[in-house]
Design a protein around this nucleic acid. Sequence first.
DNA 1: TCTTAAACGAGACGGTACGTCTGGTCTTGAA
DNA 2: TTCAAGACCAGACGTACCGTCTCGTTTAAGA
Lengths: 206, 206, 206, 206
Amino acid sequence: MSKDFETQHRLGPQRNPAIDDAVLDATRQLLEEKGYAGTSIDAIATRAGVGRPAIYRRWPSKAHIVNDAIYPVLDVEQGADIDTELGTEGTIADQIRALVQGAVALFAAPATRAAAPGLMSEVRTNSELREVLVVRQLAGVRVELNRRLEAARERGDIRSGVDADALLDIMAGAAIFAMSVRDVSDPGPFADSLADIVLNGILPNT
Amino acid sequence: MSKDFETQHRLGPQRNPAIDDAVLDATRQLLEEKGYAGTSIDAIATRAGVGRPAIYRRWPSKAHIVNDAIYPVLDVEQGADIDTELGTEGTIADQIRALVQGAVALFAAPATRAAAPGLMSEVRTNSELREVLVVRQLAGVRVELNRRLEAARERGDIRSGVDADALLDIMAGAAIFAMSVRDVSDPGPFADSLADIVLNGILPNT
Amino acid sequence: MSKDFETQHRLGPQRNPAIDDAVLDATRQLLEEKGYAGTSIDAIATRAGVGRPAIYRRWPSKAHIVNDAIYPVLDVEQGADIDTELGTEGTIADQIRALVQGAVALFAAPATRAAAPGLMSEVRTNSELREVLVVRQLAGVRVELNRRLEAARERGDIRSGVDADALLDIMAGAAIFAMSVRDVSDPGPFADSLADIVLNGILPNT
Amino acid sequence: MSKDFETQHRLGPQRNPAIDDAVLDATRQLLEEKGYAGTSIDAIATRAGVGRPAIYRRWPSKAHIVNDAIYPVLDVEQGADIDTELGTEGTIADQIRALVQGAVALFAAPATRAAAPGLMSEVRTNSELREVLVVRQLAGVRVELNRRLEAARERGDIRSGVDADALLDIMAGAAIFAMSVRDVSDPGPFADSLADIVLNGILPNT
DNA sequence: TCTTAAACGAGACGGTACGTCTGGTCTTGAA
DNA sequence: TTCAAGACCAGACGTACCGTCTCGTTTAAGA
């Protein structure tokens, strides 16, 4: 129960950044152990050795905590991060392959398997969460993916008529479904199979 | 508050099937209005004009009610239904197109948009629900799809190396993601885009 | 679970008197084992091997069943029984002594220890029960006791000014309190102590 | 529905003592209006304008609430209170008279009439309640009464052979029976009649 | 012998209360 | 101003009884 931040403990009027980490760590542990519904804010606070108000001071709801706990930040508003994330080098095929690998790896972590469907569910009723998750995080990726596909299409690297939104739905949706519902144990082969269908689906028919 | 089944109301030691319908109807309404988390069993009972114990007598958890409320039964244990459901006629391309249309239509209903991610989340911790939803319902479809793809591959109608499980993950996952997260308003064009990518992904490259 | 009345079992349009006995027996057992609050009608029906409607056909409430189960009938409307019950022979001292012995013996049975306070509680809100228990059973005893004391007072056998109602409250109340609350293990000595105080309390000084 | 304690309302980590009072007041009201069985914890919480958990934080069962609501505390562990309560001055006759008056007054309050038999009933199955009510509260009185009678007997002020326990059973039992079952409307004359019999029962026969 | 009608067990029903658990807010007192 | 601790309301959870009612069967008594 004794945490290292309990020794130097209170910083006065500044927030203690160690608390953020302790909370996110505890959240990941609990997601893995008890699942999304079983991860209560009470349990997070107890596991992190932190009071509940310290949590509510930082995040407005459980979904926001979970979102921060399982997804990399990348909402830095600059294109640089997204570019790096999406793999800016190589052919469009390489880029898509990298994207699929990235998506599968993202949703394959145990905590994420437990959390992703829960967040999908809450995003429908919690508009504050929707703003953060769908608008700020997902929309950026959509725009960037659209830009890339557009460019590739102009170069003739992909078929015309490929819907970028549907493509993103496939990559994210299939990865989440495989990891969280089918509970695929080895993500590698699945990522290959997924990339195989997706690439054949968008590249020109020779 | 008076329901039509209240007039003749009690059938003695047999359960009143009108209550099943009233509960499932109320569940669909509440899912649409309040979302998955906001749909409490109390609210369902009140809306259906039914006591809470009558619900617990029929379903062991909220997830089971929701499952019955939004998914067609088709667990008839005979292949016949699944065959019909999956579209047994025409070329493999026609069959896949029908499958994609069916999946999108299934997840496009407002109640289902609200419920599907919630069920995906609970299926991970509720093993009783997993039995019903993943093993009994999904597994049948997986087996049948696998059989069809195998046959088509032998006829050379699709590429070899296409993973049937990944294909099902794509169809279900993409449809759920598009409907529940992206909240696509018109399912028709999305289904076409999805079918376009999927078909090109599995058919031979000319 | 097989009762002897289950062999020949149903008598047609007449009630099966064996059910009355089975229910009252089960009630006494459950009172002793689980106490008054823990004795549910469900449990009585199950223990007696009887359906709930068969019970409700005979008694309007749990309190009525318990009343029948623990108290001797004596509501025969004829003074004869009460006379016998109250001990009509001997001096007034002998009669009072017999009364005290009877009261203590009545409330000393294990089932009665558990039930008496519960009935006292329900009699305040259940007016139907009040009618049966207080008016029909107790009032008769009050009247008869009053008559005896009046006669004894005229003969100079007891002090004047002794309140018959208070005397009955003492005998019943003290016996119930000793048995149900103090949980006296041996009723004999207690009955003697009680009789000692009561007799000295009403007989003339010297 | 707005209570005075709602203005300043929450005291932080300390419990709000105003809630204790509000709950006990509501309990007394409900006992008077609906009787013991009709006084649900739900109803108490609603009437007191308080959440149910706030009640369960303070008392382990309905019986404990009722006990606190109707009986004065006097479990101060020092003899002083009990001495005062039992009336330490005057002859033994005066003391007994005071005791009888006190007992009758205690059980004459409307809420107490409704509650006392219910508590007597629950004390038999709820051992936690028995500890509080019988051991901590009643036993102290029994010991003190025994001491007084012993002293009086040595002085020759009462007959030898008077059982202190039976005497207490008489005073408490008769008062409860008269108030809760017979429902005596005017406690004064009853207390006089009871004291008359009791005093004659224990004083020497001149 | 056949019919009628009541009693029976089994158990579903709406309703109410139980005691527990969360979520999100607020307050205290120390640092 | 932050922190931990924790009290607070609101309300959902799943369970247990209550008293009523209906079912389908059994059985005694009357036709």
